[in-house]
Design a protein around this nucleic acid. Structure first.
Lengths: 283, 283
DNA sequence: ACACCAAATGTAGTAAAATTACAACTTGAA
DNA sequence: TTCAAGTTGTAATTTTACTACATTTGGTGT
C-alpha cells in the first residue's frame, strides 16, 4: 500500500506533533527520503523520537524502514496525493496541488468503480429507446457533457437543467427508457423524487452517485464513486471530474459495443465540424 | 536510472569481492534493502567497507543511499500511460485504460501550464467587473461548469451556449470585463470572432486553448493546455478534463486571493443547499 | 625466485544515526 | 484541584555506517 496515501488518510488520527511531521513529509517527500531523522525532526520542529513514533504508527519498523517505504511510494507510478490547498500557497503550489489531488481522486475513483455494473449499464444504454441525463448544480454540467457525448450516437438523448422539465420528462418515460441521474451526495431531494417518478413509469434508473445514499436506494443500478472532496473549498471539484470520466467510460463502452461501422459514423459526425473551423495544415 | 540494471551491466568492472556483493544483492534484492551493511557483508562473505565501496562505485552516497535507490528500482510500477482503447477490450480493460489515460493527460497538462499566466489571470478575474465564460460543443459544458463555480463568488458571471447571445453579450463589454473563451483546438471560427468582438470593446480576453491557434492569437492572455487526445474515439475526453481542472485552479486562486472572510461567504452559499437535501446523520 | 608496487581487502576505531527508557509536560474528567 | 491517560522531549544507549590505516594479494621486472 502506498505510504503517502496512508499518511493523508490517517492524518486525522495523528497527534499534534505527528501532524507537523506529516506536513513536512507531504510537502516535500523527495527531501524527506534523503534526510536523517535529526534533520527531519528539526524541519518539523519536533523531537527525534516523535519522528520515530510517527514512523511506527504507519506500521513501519522505524525511520530507515519508513524511508524505504516512502522511496518505493515515490517510485511507484503515482506520487499523487490529495494535498489540500493552503491559504498561503503560491500560484505554483496551488496549481500543482489541484492537479495532483485531481489525479489522486481519479485513482481512488478508478478503484471504487464496479466494472460489472459498468458493463450492465452499457448494455442498457445500447438498447435504450431514449436516454436522459439529469443533474443539478455542479452535476448539471456533467449531465450537459453526457448529452454532448451521447447525442453523437444517434440515440434520442434528453437533458434539462430545469427540475420541472426533468419531472415532466420522466412522467413521459416508458419501458426501455434509461434515466441517468448524477449527484455527488445523492441527497438532493428533487433528484430523488425524479428517480421515483421515472421508476413508476417503468424507466430504468441509473445513479452516478454515492453508495447507500437516498438516491442510490431509488435507482435500478448504481455506479458509485467514492471520491474524497476537499470540503475546505466549499466547491465540488474532484467529484465531478470522476463523474465525467465515468461518462467517458460509458460512452466508450457504448461505441465498442456497437462495433466498427458505428465508429465510422462518429467520424462523420466529427467531420461535419470542419466547416466551422479554420483549417490546420495537414488536417 | 534503474540501479539493478546498473549492477548487471557493471558486473565486469567489479573486483572479486564486489562481484560477491553484487551476486548476493541480485539474488535477493528484497532481502538486501532490509539488511544492515553488517548483515549484507556477512552474507557476501566480505567486510563492511567492501560493501560500502561497492555502493560508492554505483554513484551513490553510501550504503543507506544505495538502499533507497534499490528500493525505488524494485517498486518500479508502471506510471500512467496514455494507452488507447482497443476494439476487443473487456469492460475491465477499457475502464482502466480510460481512467489511466485521463490521469496521464492531467500530468501532461500540469506540466504545460504556465503558472505566471495563471497568476495574472487570477489577478484579472478578482478585479473584473463582469466575467463571461463561452465555449461550444464539449467546451460548452466546461464553460457551464465555470459558471457554476464563479457565480458563488458574488461577481456578475455570464454564460451562453448560443453563439448569437455570445456575440451580443460581447458587444456590450467594456473595460474591466473579462471574457474567458474555451476551445481545445482554438480553431472554431465563431469563437475566434467573439474574441475579436470582445477585444474591440476593450474587454480582456483569456483563452483556454491550444497555443499558437487562431484563437490564441486573438487573446490578451492564453492559458495553453497541450493535452494529447485519443482521436480514435472521435470525442473530446481528456482535453475537457484538463480544462475543468484549470477552471478549478482559477477558482481556487480567486478564493485564496480574496482571503479568509470570503471563504466564510462560500460556506454560507454552500449551506443554503441544506434545505434541498436529505439530512445526513452528523451533518 | 625474489623484491617491489599497486590494487584490493580487512581491522579497528570513530562518527553518526536511530532507538530506548524515562521524565516532564498537557489535557480533560472526576 | 487532582489524577490519569496521552503526548512530547531529554539524555543515555545501541546500532549502524564510515574512515584511516594495516594487511594481504597478485602481478611485474630483475
Amino acid at each position: 500500500m502506498n505510504i503517502l496515501e496512508k499518511i493523508t488518510q490517517n492524518q486525522a488520527a495523528f497527534s499534534k506533533s505527528e501532524k507537523k511531521v506529516a506536513e513536512v513529509i507531504l510537502a516535500n517527500p523527495q527531501t524527506a527520503i534523503h534526510s536523517s531523522i535529526a534533520t527531519l525532526a528539526k524541519m518539523s520542529d519536533v523531537s527525534e523520537p516523535t519522528v520515530n513514533r510517527f514512523c511506527r504508527r504507519l506500521d513501519t519498523k522505524g525511520f530507515p524502514d519508513f524511508k524505504l517505504h516512502l522511496a518505493q511510494s515515490l517510485a511507484n507510478g503515482t506520487p499523487y496525493v490529495n494535498r489540500h490547498v493552503d491559504e498561503n500557497d503560491s500560484p505554483d503550489e496551488y496549481t500543482n496541488k489541484i492537479f495532483e489531488s485531481t489525479m489522486a481522486s481519479l485513482e481512488v475513483a478508478r478503484q471504487s468503480v464496479n466494472v460489472h455494473v459498468v458493463n450492465r449499464v452499457v448494455d442498457l444504454l445500447t438498447q435504450a429507446q431514449k436516454i436522459s441525463f439529469f443533474g443539478l448544480g455542479a452535476s448539471a454540467s456533467v449531465a450537459h457533457d453526457a448529452l454532448n457525448k451521447f447525442f453523437r450516437f444517434n440515440v434520442p438523448v434528453v437533458y434539462f437543467e430545469d427540475i420541472l422539465m426533468q419531472r415532466m420528462s420522466c412522467m413521459n418515460c416508458s419501458a426501455g427508457d434509461v434515466v441517468v441521474l448524477i449527484s455527488h451526495t445523492g441527497r438532493t431531494k428533487s433528484l430523488v423524487e425524479i428517480a421515483q417518478i421515472a421508476r413508476m413509469n417503468d424507466a430504468t434508473v441509473v445513479g452516478i452517485t454515492s453508495a447507500e445514499s437516498p438516491l442510490a436506494q431509488e435507482c435500478s443500478y448504481v455506479l458509485s464513486l467514492e471520491v474524497p472532496e476537499d470540503t475546505d473549498m466549499y466547491m465540488p471539484m474532484a467529484s465531478r471530474i470522476a463523474q465525467l470520466t465515468l461518462i467517458d467510460v460509458l460512452a466508450t463502452g457504448f461505441t465498442l459495443r456497437r462495433g466498427n461501422k458505428f465508429r465510422e459514423n462518429l467520424k462523420r459526425v466529427k467531420d461535419t465540424l470542419r466547416g466551422s473551423r479554420y483549417e490546420k495544415r495537414g488536417d
